[in-house]
Nucleic acid binder design. Structure first.
Lengths: 220, 220
DNA sequence: TAGATTGTTAATCGATTAACAATC
DNA sequence: TAGATTGTTAATCGATTAACAATC
C-alpha cells in the first residue's frame, strides 16, 4: 500500500470492479484472479492488480482475490459503506428516469430530495419524494446531509443550480446539462451529458460515405 | 495537418468544442481564440490548438478561429454534416427520457426506431415513433440505415441486444446498461452507465468523517 | 512440491503542456 | 509596425503494460 494520490482513471474503474464482483458474489464464486477480472472487463490484469494495490494488499499470491472481502474493501474505499444522500435537481423526463433507478439504493446511494422550478411540479410526488422548489435547495441540502447533487435542469439553469449546491456545501456534482460547470477544486464535478458521448461516437462511423462515394466531383 | 491516428481523448473533446462554438454562433461572436476556449471549457489552450490541428489549419495566426467555419469543420469531422440515424433499444423510463431529448436533431442525430421486448409497449407511440418488437431489430436497422444503437435495456438483456445490433451491421453503440459489452474492434462501444459515475464521485467525498476525525487513536 | 497468482519495479507508451518561430 | 495568436516541436508528465521475485 502506497500513499500516492490516486488518479481519476483508477477511481473510475473501482465501481466497474465492484459491479462485477457483486455479480460473482451473487453466483457464490469465492475467489477471482486479476486474469479473470481482466478478461471479463476488457482490462489488463496488471492494471487491475496495480489499481487495487494502491489501497492495500487485498489478494493472496497463488490464489487471487476473495470476492466478499474485495467487495467490502472497495465499498469502503468508495465511501459506500455508509449511506450517501443524493439530491436530484430537475424533475423533467431525465430526472424522473434517474429517480426511478433504485440501483443506487443497494449501493448505499439514495436520492432523498428532488427539486424543480416549475410551479406545476412542486408538491407532486416522484418515487415517494415530494418535489420541492429550488428555493429550498440550500436549506434542505444542509439539513438532510446531502453529499452529491445530480443536475438535470436545462443548460441555462445548470450553473446557477451548481452555485447553490456549492454554497450549501455539496461534496460532488453529476452534471447532465451540456455545459461545463465551474466549481472550486474541492467540489468534484463529473460530466454525464450523453449527447456529447453520442456525438463522439459519430466520429467512428465511416461517414456513411460508402454509397455516396462519388469521386468524379473531386477533381477541383 | 497530420495523418496520425486520433486518440479517443481528442475525439471526445470535439463535441465539447462544438457545443460551445454553437453558443458563440448564437451570440454572433465572429472569432474565438484557443485562450478563450480554454478558459470557458477548463482546458489548456495548447491542447485545443493541438486537437484542432490534427484535422487541419482552421485558425488564423494573430486572429483566432472563425466561429462559423470551425463549426462547419468540426461537424464534418464528426460526420454530423449528414443525418445519423439512431435506434433506441429499451423503452423504459430512461429510454423514454432519452427519446424525448431532441437535442440530437439539431446536431443531425435522430432516433428513427425504438424497440422493446414488453408486449404491452409494442405498437404504442413514443415521441411519434411506434415501438417495435426486438425481433424486428436486425431488419429495421438494415432497412433504415441505422448507424448507432442506444441500449437502455436491463443488464441481463444488454449483451444479447448488442449482438443483434452488431449482426445488423451497426457502427457504434452507446450502452447505458451496467455491464461491459463485448463487440468486435470495428464497432465502437461507449459506456454511459451513470451509476458507475455516481459511485466514483462518492470516492471524493471525505467519507463524512470530518466529525469523526479522532487522531488520538493513530499513535501506533 | 509444482503451479498459480500476487504486488511491485522497470519499461513503454501516450497524452498534456510549454515554448516559440511564423505570421496575421 | 506592434500585439496577438496560431501550428508545431520539444519537454514533461502520467498512465499502462511487461516482467518477475515472492509466496500461497
Amino acid at each position: 500500500m502506497k500513499t500516492e494520490k490516486i488518479s481519476d482513471a483508477v477511481v473510475r474503474r473501482l465501481p466497474v470492479y465492484l459491479r462485477f464482483l457483486n455479480e460473482l458474489s451473487r453466483r457464490e464464486v469465492p475467489t477471482v484472479s486479476s486474469q479473470e477480472l481482466g478478461q471479463k472487463l476488457d482490462l489488463n490484469p496488471a492494471q487491475i492488480r496495480k489499481d487495487l494495490a494502491y489501497f492495500g494488499d487485498f489478494g493472496r499470491k497463488g490464489i487471487g482475490y476473495d470476492v466478499p472481502y474485495l467487495i467490502e474493501k472497495i465499498r469502503q474505499i468508495l465511501n459506500l459503506d455508509q449511506q450517501i444522500n443524493v439530491a436530484l435537481i430537475g424533475a423533467g423526463n431525465l430526472g424522473q428516469a434517474l429517480s426511478n433507478y433504485n440501483a443506487y439504493v443497494k449501493d448505499n446511494m439514495k436520492i432523498v430530495a428532488v427539486f424543480d422550478s416549475s410551479p406545476a411540479k412542486i408538491g407532486t410526488m416522484i418515487n415517494n419524494i415530494e418535489i420541492q422548489p429550488i428555493e429550498e435547495l440550500i436549506e434542505t441540502v444542509k439539513k438532510k446531509n446531502i453529499r452529491i447533487g445530480i443536475i438535470t435542469v436545462p443548460d441555462v439553469e445548470a450553473q446557477r443550480v451548481a452555485d447553490q449546491l456549492i454554497e450549501a456545501g455539496i461534496g460532488a456534482i453529476l452534471n447532465f446539462a451540456p455545459i461545463i460547470i465551474k466549481a472550486p477544486a474541492e467540489v468534484r464535478v463529473h460530466a454525464a451529458d450523453f449527447t456529447t458521448d453520442l456525438m463522439s461516437l459519430a466520429y467512428y462511423l465511416d461517414g456513411g460515405k460508402e454509397t455516396t462515394n462519388d469521386d468524379s466531383k473531386m477533381a477541383d
